[in-house]
Design a protein around this nucleic acid. Sequence first.
DNA 1: TTGTATGCGTTATCAC
DNA 2: GTGATAACGCATACAA
Lengths: 366, 366
Amino acid sequence: MEQPSKRPRRGRTPGAGGRPSRPRQAEVARLAGVSQATVSLVLSDKAQGSAISDETRQRVLDAARSLGYVPDVAAQRLAAARNNLLGVYSFTATFPTDVEHSYYPFLVGVEREAAARGYDLVLFTGSSSGGAKAAGPEALNRVRLADGCLFLGRHVPLAELKRMVADGFPVVHLGRREELEGLAWVGADYVSASREVVRHLASAGHRRVVLIREDDDAPASTDRQQGFLEGLEAAALPGGPGAVFRCADPAREVTPERLRRWLAEGVTAFVAEETDTGGAWRALRAAVDAAGLSCPGDLSLALLGSPPPDLAGGPQPTGFDVPRHQLGAAAVRMLALLVAGEEAQEPLVACAFRAGTTTGSPPQPR
Amino acid sequence: MEQPSKRPRRGRTPGAGGRPSRPRQAEVARLAGVSQATVSLVLSDKAQGSAISDETRQRVLDAARSLGYVPDVAAQRLAAARNNLLGVYSFTATFPTDVEHSYYPFLVGVEREAAARGYDLVLFTGSSSGGAKAAGPEALNRVRLADGCLFLGRHVPLAELKRMVADGFPVVHLGRREELEGLAWVGADYVSASREVVRHLASAGHRRVVLIREDDDAPASTDRQQGFLEGLEAAALPGGPGAVFRCADPAREVTPERLRRWLAEGVTAFVAEETDTGGAWRALRAAVDAAGLSCPGDLSLALLGSPPPDLAGGPQPTGFDVPRHQLGAAAVRMLALLVAGEEAQEPLVACAFRAGTTTGSPPQPR
DNA sequence: TTGTATGCGTTATCAC
DNA sequence: GTGATAACGCATACAA
């Protein structure tokens, strides 16, 4: 045997054989000729005032640098401190093969803001491939290695999240999520943005505006409708059932004939909800074309969101853009607040109004 | 007072006030009437044989369940001396605003493979690493907090990498990188793939083949040329200087006239190098069109890579695809090996041959 | 101003 | 088979 008897279980003696290991504070201390505690004090910068002499401090810093010291994140966490790591957990793959459906735009903002605040990001590879340890409760538990965690996606298991929140672990959900009391989230302010679009139309002179929406009760849909109705009310325009056209299949129900009927009734502007497929907007545009109408000459069109990629080439619709970068950044900001033990802030991020070429003044009454 | 004098500094007594804390193994042990070590043994399932009685095991499991015990990852990883974190370092932002030039395709594979192996990813960014402590050479040191690190991009400072390698820190570079002895890397096997393309042409009957390449000495270029030449030799086709056309500006130098001259000399197939801009391929196609020739009727064209995005709509060129997903996965696999203290493996990943519509048999001699 | 002592929750070793 | 006990690396109250 190599070792006589009292051999430590894990042979981690720095200079000894085997794989070299990360330098620890103890080694920095030895090199600097101080105690481990002093190293901790210097490096954590907690000894603000004059607790430690400049000379000692410098010696420690030099030693740390020359050794390439980096704190052990697990040990930091265990000691009830923080490790400057923010987790990002998405229930679906963060980098799906289909780029379209990725969180990429959000991550851009997340990365930027995290970097600006001195955090590193840990991408917890959730269910992407259901590796060895598939979706047990354990899987979610890994995120506790970080100081806090950002959750993306619709299918986050609320039960697990609830527990984290209850335990006081900082959690932020990207996207409105009000089912769970106490769960912090950030989301786009569709209500205000939709209201603003109506205001824009009203101030251009439109008096009768109709919202075309699909048959979906997602928050993103109901928020938009609410904002739309609020906008009508604020501008003293007629609301009521007639102002909202809800249809299961816009392509079939928004016909040129229907369009003409609306116009005959005095409607001069239409607002389309934004959905995954952009069905409402698509149907509206098709109907206008088929009816031989021109926009914004004969009527105005607005879109409560961004046009689908395949229609990006067409005329720029008046509406708003969901600020995905800013949403990511806002989520990180809120998470940082929670990590610091402060209160959560305003969860809503404003959407940017987009003045397009599909709206104008209503045509002169005949 | 509950405790006379030696009260622990941090009041974490389970039932006490302050932040709620999750059950620990000690409490499970108390409930089950065993020792904490036994709990650890049972839960970690390490006592395979018959170290622990089935009855005890069951009591422990029941206790753990009823308490909702979940292991503390920080403690687990502290004790295990590793944190199951793999670093991903890119000198440019990991998520650039311009999606086209991102590492996205690689990250897809990286994420998938990391998840399959139970690793999480720490994303470091050259510009971001430590918003506070700006981008000195220190920035690179931060990656040591992970168990190992993957490096992407061309501009990685080799001096720093060298030190990490020397220190025994597991490092893998994505992309061939042989300047640094001992630096592990994975890359695409352009040599074999190019050879295969030539083989394909030769077996179709072509006897004179010319490579069009740009004036660049990157490994990706020289590898392709080497494979091309090897392919010629293997098929007993004429090599030599005439077989490679190296030009600084393909658009100007690959003219319809030049093309006709080659054809007159008996050349029946052309192979274009792939570059960022796709210049060689672009020039070749333009020259063929301008000369009024048809492909693969009058001549065959092959591309040593994938066509540029804007030409994706055109005919599918015969050639090969760089398996970016697989490269990312292979890099993670190699990194995992190094972290486990094992030897690095084969660094080359095969490219997938792509049978396109731009090659066929050579035209019958006049 | 610096060093000493202790605990965080786990794992692993070794007597019992 | 089971239960003390000693690290793991760090932070911190307290003594010097």
